[in-house]
């Protein structure tokens, strides 16, 4: 919980619409459930990695790339030669992790490289009502705050000699949970009260139709993403049948 980067980013090389990122995420899930064809899945994964690099998440992209293909190599070379419990165990570790990689990467692309205002603008364009959009943006606003509060509570626990480790969680789970939840609730209740007062006094929830300053538009990259994601999804469905 130390590093909350949600909803804020350095600008990508080529701008991408949150809607096409969402579609990409959906397509990545197809790779997880329908992917029997190595070649198509691998190609699609490389495409996602390239988009991550475009979003300036280079380090993440590289790590994912190496893990994916290393695990694939292990899968192809090693596991086919083994049998029994060991092979099932190795299969679970290496193949399942690998299958999840495209989904994880697409999720990171969606979350790390999209600002809250871009999300809100996309929702607005999709015709969602403020009743959904406002709680959503408050949620994003709260992640970093929770991070800050959590750090304060951890420090306070250290001073008071309250343990928070595997041992305390296993031996006295309820007590440990209470020591975390009580102060966390108290401080977040206070913060959310203040936040509501501030937003109401700034006209949130008024009768007028809200406008959205951030405008979003499909770019060249977005058309590419939509076409490739659609082809991949149709392909996996047909392949599965």
């Amino acid at each position: 919980m130390e590093n909350f980067n949600f909803g804020y980013t350095n600008s990508p090389y080529l701008w991408m619409d949150p809607r096409s990122k969402a579609l990409l995420f959906l397509a990545a899930n197809f790779a997880l459930w329908g992917g029997t064809n190595y070649f198509a899945s691998n190609l699609f994964f490389v495409f996602i990695v390239l988009l991550l690099i475009n979003g300036k998440q280079t380090r993440m992209a590289m790590t994912a790339f190496v893990i994916y293909f290393a695990f694939l190599a292990i899968d192809v070379v090693l596991i086919s030669k083994l049998s029994g419990t060991v092979s099932i165990l190795l299969l679970t570790i290496f193949r399942v992790t690998r299958l999840y990689m495209p989904v994880i990467c697409a999720a990171i692309l969606l979350i790390r490289t999209t600002t809250v205002s871009e999300f809100v603008a996309a929702f607005k364009r999709m015709g969602l009502s403020d009743k959904i959009i406002i709680p959503f943006s408050v949620m994003f606003r709260f992640f970093p705050t929770l991070g800050e509060e959590w750090r304060n509570i951890r420090n306070a626990m250290r001073f008071r000699g309250i343990r928070f480790d595997w041992q305390s969680i296993m031996l006295s789970p309820i007590k440990t949970l209470e020591y975390v939840i009580v102060p966390l609730l108290m401080s977040t209740v206070k913060i959310s009260g203040d936040l509501s007062a501030a937003s109401i006094s700034r006209g949130l929830g008024g009768p007028k139709e809200r406008t959205c300053f951030k405008q979003i538009r499909f770019g060249i990259l977005d058309y590419g993403v939509v076409i490739l994601s659609s082809i991949f999804m149709i392909f996996t469905i047909l392949d599965g049948m």
Binding site: V116, P144, L195, G203, G206, K208, F213, K214
Partner: peptide, 25 residues
Amino acid sequence: PRTQFFNVDTTSELAFGCENLGVAV
């Protein structure tokens, strides 16, 4: 200052009040 912001980035925050009042883009 910690609890009066609705947004995560400064530009959106500057726009926030105007958006609520329905000011044109």
